[in-house]
Design a protein around this nucleic acid. Structure first.
Lengths: 250, 250
DNA sequence: AAAATCATTCGGGAGAGCCGAAACGCTTCT
DNA sequence: AGAAGCGTTTCGGCTCTCCCGAATGATTTT
């Protein structure tokens, strides 16, 4: 963990990040934004094109579908993804809402798969999207099944960023909730990440009780009353359970 | 197009390719396969971890969900993808088969989106998967709407690789078929890429008649007889048409 | 306990990347 | 048309970075 670095690699991926962020760009435009000399950026772009991860059409550079390919291959090998795939569809059909599978990666909560039910609100949620662990139901469900030490480390490194006025920003409150989540078997958040949205999520554990991810249903608060919440909680808990069993057969 | 290169960039992505191919790996394992010194591979992996595109757990390195993220962002910005999304679902429901949106990229045919109908056979088809343009219906639909010169260039660069004993390997036969495809408005292949599968595909053109991609339905030959083919051809043609109109409102 | 295997650190030398400057190509203005 | 403006691409000599063998440390196997 010395953080041995390689300037070229770092710069190459900074350019990729920039391309992804803005959906492509031209040489001088990127040079401007990244504060690098144009000729340098030009060189990198040439090299990136050579790799097949970037393409250029009419002086406009952009990322290629290779990222999709690498991403999907990796996802396909993720056991919890395979174990949950059918479940997500079922839940989306049953609840009509927005259903996701989320996992932890580098202290963050990442969407691995999205399944939109017929009534799903249009969230800006796509595979690969990241969010803080503490600020939403699936993240909390995941944290609830890590050791307190590990949770504390994540808090130390990432802080408890406020995303709405409902976001939990006090570590004590968070730890109390994690306890509660372990007891009731699911997590819930009310506008802690996106105002007006309620998310209900159950953790997916494997045989050795390691946390593998969380299944999450999201919908507008207006549509999801007390009774509906209990209903959805049961659904995600049942699905998480099925998934746990499936994990053995992957 | 001088092919100005950068060794570090090239090597970094070769490592990524290797990780994607084999779903991760350890330092010496990768060093072996790539024929690089272990210390060098180690350095690169450190640098890649630093960027966030690779992660390591227990000495096992693998790509992260960042690839998914970059890939999906790019896809989301692809006009033809936005224009076609609803159509794919409809076709999958209507035909029950395997439906894809494909585009051309770097002389190849790439899957951008997949929608599996209830009866879909399980193809190894995922977003980002690539295939030769000449060896399947969607590729031929795309080629049919490029200039003959451009088609010839692609043949010169890529050749007409034989994937099954049905694959078109004679340029003259290919050019004849492209003419036919333009006339009837859709392309068909019978086991030219995968034995036993028939694919029917319609090109998606924009207002200025530029080719943007192709919508494709695939199923087993046994299930898709003459009548069914005509039916599916009509469906993909209609959908391609709707998509063309949608393109203006994206 | 010894041996074998693999990951990691270190450092001096080679060569790869760097970027200013100039050339080129394309569009826009006078 | 001519000239000016703008962005891209090429070039090349200097510098700094990456390179990798060898030593060390960590783990697993015999």
């Amino acid at each position: 963990m010395t953080g041995a670095s390689n300037r070229s690699v770092e710069r190459a991926f900074r350019i990729v990040d920039e391309l992804a962020e803005n959906g492509g760009g031209r040489v001088s435009e990127l040079a401007d934004r990244l504060e690098m000399p144009v000729s340098t950026v030009h060189n990198y772009l040439q090299a990136l094109v050579e790799t097949g991860y970037v393409t250029v059409e009419d002086k406009e550079y952009s990322t290629t579908t290779r990222f999709l390919e690498v991403g999907h291959r990796q996802r396909h090998r993720l056991e919890v993804f395979q174990a949950v795939s059918d479940e997500l569809q079922d839940i989306a059909a049953e609840t009509g809402e927005h259903v996701t599978l989320m996992v932890e990666e580098n202290d963050q909560c990442v969407i691995v798969a999205v399944q939109e039910g017929p009534d799903a609100v249009n969230l800006f949620a796509y595979p690969g999207a990241r969010m803080p662990l503490h600020a939403a139901a699936p993240g909390k469900a995941i944290l609830a099944h890590m050791s307190d030490d590990r949770v504390q480390e994540i808090i130390d490194r990432q802080g408890l960023i406020e995303m709405t006025n409902q976001t939990i920003t006090d570590p004590d409150v968070l730890f109390d909730q994690l306890e509660e989540i372990r007891e009731q078997g699911y997590a819930i958040d009310e506008g802690e990440r996106i105002a007006g949205m309620v998310c209900i999520s159950a953790p997916v554990l494997d045989k050795s009780d390691e946390i593998r991810g969380a299944i999450c249903v999201c919908g507008p608060q207006s549509r999801i009353d007390e009774a509906r919440r209990a209903e959805i909680a049961d659904i995600v808990k049942r699905s998480a359970n099925v998934t746990q069993v499936n994990l053995d057969y992957v």
